[in-house]
């Protein structure tokens, strides 16, 4: 078919942040489907909880303190996370490197406390369905935490190599910030379900 050039794209930039970038939309897509997974798991928990009048099924209450510490750590981490986002948008390589190191540490810290959360549930996964659902919910979020912290550490290393100083990498940092928000955000309802809903009953 014959062609008629009628638009010049040569002045367009080669990368963009946020909703301009396809990776941002891809990240959003994965958040949507993973968020749906969380919602379904939480729905299953609530379904069982409303089905049985004596929910908690005579199990002891979970100790909320490790979970509360994780929650506080996660909420505090949002501040440097968003400062890092600002640096990434400005393509400031030095501050971005420092910010990535800080975020790696702030990712590992809740993971360490998470280790103490499982025994603090005060029930095993194979005791009854209540125990099973607590372990499933906590396990689901821990999987997200581990994969995102792993991803953050690899990206931090990458930012210190010669590959770091490019628009594409600054975009990656922006998407990493975005995904961490999601990891923190999904924790809040799960925290309430695991530690505070059993106290209601």
């Amino acid at each position: 078919m014959k062609q008629r050039p009628s638009l010049d794209l040569s002045a367009l930039p080669t990368f963009g942040h946020g909703p301009r970038s396809p990776t941002w939309w891809g990240t959003l897509g994965f958040m949507a489907l993973e968020g749906m997974g969380f919602a379904i798991a939480a729905g299953a928990y609530l379904y069982l909880a409303t089905l049985w009048p004596n929910w908690r099924l005579s199990a002891p209450q979970p100790n909320h303190w490790p979970g509360t510490i994780v929650t506080l750590l996660l909420i505090v981490s949002l501040v440097p996370n968003h400062i890092l986002h600002g640096y990434a948008k400005r393509c400031a390589i030095g501050p971005v490197r420092i910010g990535m190191v800080v975020m790696s540490l702030l990712g590992v810290a809740p993971l360490v406390v998470r280790w103490f959360e499982f025994p603090a549930l005060n029930i095993y996964w194979d005791t009854n369905a209540y125990g099973s659902m607590l372990w499933v919910l906590l396990g689901l979020h821990t999987t997200h935490l581990i994969t995102d912290v792993g991803d953050t550490i690899v990206l931090t290393v990458l930012m210190f190599t010669r590959h770091g100083y490019s628009g594409r990498r600054f975009g990656d940092v922006g998407d990493n910030v975005f995904y961490w928000d999601f990891v923190v955000l999904t924790w809040i309802p799960i925290y309430l379900l695991i530690y505070w809903m059993p106290r209601l009953g």
């Binding site: 078919m1 062609q3 367009l12 080669t14």
Partner: peptide, 29 residues
């Protein structure tokens, strides 16, 4: 004749990113 756009690089795999609603050209990705 089909109207076409020019200005993309040919030595690397470059394609056009456009805006979500209007499909205005935005980025050479």
């Amino acid at each position: 004749a089909l109207p076409v756009a020019t200005g993309l690089r040919v030595d690397v795999r470059e394609l056009l990113i456009s805006t979500v609603a209007e499909a205005h050209p935005d980025i050479r990705e």
